[in-house]
Design a protein around this nucleic acid. Structure first.
Ligand code: FES
Ligand code: FES
Lengths: 144, 144
DNA sequence: ATAATAAAAGATATTAATGTCTTTTATAGT
DNA sequence: ACTATAAAAGACATTAATATCTTTTATTAT
């Protein structure tokens, strides 16, 4: 479904959003622990998110990562596309070059609805939405 | 979504089912061409399907691969599980060790419906179903 | 200015997925 | 029996994903 990079990117975004109090930012180490992912790998990934303006970073002492309200209000789909591209919501499930009802693969008709609900889920839920679930203890980012 | 191996396995199964006339079987070369996939790689995959009894194979002259009615009536999910395991219909979309509503990840609630419809699609459609679509020219296995 | 901190960048390592080629085995037809 | 055919099996190659380590750069605080 998602690549590991994408899984970590989603969880890291939510974690960063969750720990945003407007003052302090959160460092790689803490993020990696919070989402139970390898530290150096997470570093790579959130640096990429930062380069691509999905999150902000601050160097030096008391530095780390944080998100603006605007960034938190972006749909999760944005993160997914940054990491994995838009294949999940566009491509043919059987790998045909183009997914279209003109020349559909055998699974196309059945898959269309699923792909659409996948797209809806990713478009209609923001980082902030998922952050709230975690803050309300209705969801978790790790298995501790 | 699916691995390449799984994509090829699904398409190959449908192709073999499609070319089954009860008499002749179809060889790797023809299958690979028919599904636009690398021949040697397809060979590996359908050999695995054969080992696991999802299809039959016959060695020697006029040999090749074919499927019984019973095999054709198996849901596509069987092929998927043989190649990729059951992660797609069981695992947490964010990679938590267990997917459960007890300790759900932030996407769990939204994802459940999607996972269920994915499972339904894969359980309720057989190789024969998709074969029919191709035979009726309502679907294709390649882009030629 | 200097030291400490933490991200950025770059290099390297490991593993898994994908793809290819060669040799062996079984079978059919002569 | 011999030959041709085609799958089975095993070895090998390539690429992409995942993971780790080192060096550099920016920033803060002393
Ligand atoms: S053509 Fe395969 S999913 Fe649309
Ligand atoms: S816990 Fe993540 S999808 Fe169920």
């Amino acid at each position: 479904m998602f690549s590991k990079s994408c899984e970590y990117a989603i969880k890291a975004s939510i974690f960063i959003a969750q720990h945003r109090d407007g003052v302090t930012c959160v460092g790689v180490k803490e993020i990696a622990k919070g989402i139970q992912a390898p530290e150096y790998f997470v570093a790579k990934i959130i640096q990429e998110l930062s380069r691509k303006k999905a999150i902000n970073s601050i160097k030096g002492p008391n530095g780390g990562f944080c998100m603006s309200e605007a960034q938190m209000k972006k749909p999760i789909l944005d993160i997914v596309v940054l990491m994995d591209g838009d294949g999940l919501v566009n491509n043919c499930i059987l790998g045909l070059e183009h997914c279209s009802s003109d020349n559909p693969c055998p699974m196309h008709h059945e898959y269309q609805k699923i792909k659409q609900s996948m797209r809806n889920m990713l478009e209609n839920n923001t980082v902030a939405d998922f952050k709230s679930l975690v803050n309300l203890k209705k969801a978790v980012l790790n298995t501790n």
